[in-house]
Design a binder for these strands. Structure first.
Lengths: 174, 174
DNA sequence: CCGGAATGCTTCGAAGTCGAAGCACCAATC
DNA sequence: GATTGGTGCTTCGACTTCGAAGCATTCCGG
């Protein structure tokens, strides 16, 4: 580790024990490995990046059109990143974009038949990879516990920071 | 067409182990959020990317020089990525590179005083962010369980795929 | 000792991400 | 109806990452 708790205390900040640091590093590395493998599979079976897969999956499960901002939420951390990816997906005819009738600033994004078919085609392999790498190592009880933990943590994090649409200037705390 | 999207689910997204998928998505999103916030903090307090921080931390905890390949392991997925980052860190005088006396192909990387100081300076904030976002939501028991799970999963994944050094041409079984 | 294969690292080009700036549209106010 | 500020998306430039190709060195069989 990068320093005993005593070292950290010397810096004047209450330390997080090495146990917590170990958990943190294991978590980050495991997810990094998982994500990398998942990307390999998506690229191989559907010529998709993980981001693109997330976007398609989000559209497929949304049950309707989404605006660009809604679509970006939780997937990319910049609007421009989504514009780029949406351009690729549209060129590949996996999604369509059209101006919203209600608000002409907004762009409504919808998934095409081809997009749905592609998601259906890569999802089984996706699940297969995650099972082989993640769920194989987990007991039924582990799964429950992990689910409970990560759901709680995610919701906690979601509440904290601004997400894809930070106010351009500043946001008075509502 | 895309006009009646209420049937999106019927289009081809089968329900494949919804419980596991939920855990998987929660895990990925939580880590993504955490990583993003951590990067903000590192950039603000030390002008470091997460990758750079990982490299410095690895060197600091190694207790000695590491070769480029050892350093890359688990941080980047390409050698060239490390060459790039090592170049930046060397230019910032946070690390030094010198050829290995034993094997002149190898480059030995060492952290400098400035590098150690920087790690010591950003680590408290880093810990602070992770505590606020991650550990605040975890009970003592959760921490144990999560640590056990992720360590096991990580080790399982490490054993599976080739890491930074895949055989250049092909790998005969063995 | 010599030649071919493997290994360690770097260079190069392509692709993706982000933040800032910019354009078009909506809403509120006069 | 015109002006001013806020919002949605895109464009642009800088930066980072990866994979393939390349160079230098080491290992291994003869």
């Amino acid at each position: 580790m990068v320093g005993t708790p005593a070292d950290a205390d010397a810096g004047g900040v209450p330390a997080l024990g090495p146990r917590q640091l170990g958990v943190y590093f294991a978590l980050m590395e495991a997810v990094s490995l998982l994500q990398h493998q998942v990307e390999q599979q998506l690229r191989a079976e559907g010529d998709l990046s993980y981001v693109q897969f997330q976007l398609l999956a989000r559209l497929a499960s949304a049950g309707g059109d989404l605006t660009m901002t809604q679509l970006a939420d939780g997937v990319v951390y910049s609007r421009s990143g989504l514009t780029y990816q949406a351009g690729l997906l549209e060129k590949a005819e996996l999604i369509t974009r059209r101006p919203s009738p209600d608000d002409e600033r907004s762009t409504l994004v919808a998934i095409t038949e081809a997009g749905l078919a592609l998601v259906g085609r890569v999802l089984p392999g996706h699940v297969e990879v995650t099972r082989g790498l993640l769920f194989d190592s987990l007991s039924d009880d582990d799964l429950d516990h992990l689910g409970a933990i990560m759901t709680r943590v995610r919701d906690h994090m979601r509440a904290q920071p601004p997400r894809s649409a930070v106010p351009r200037k500043r946001k008075p705390s509502g």
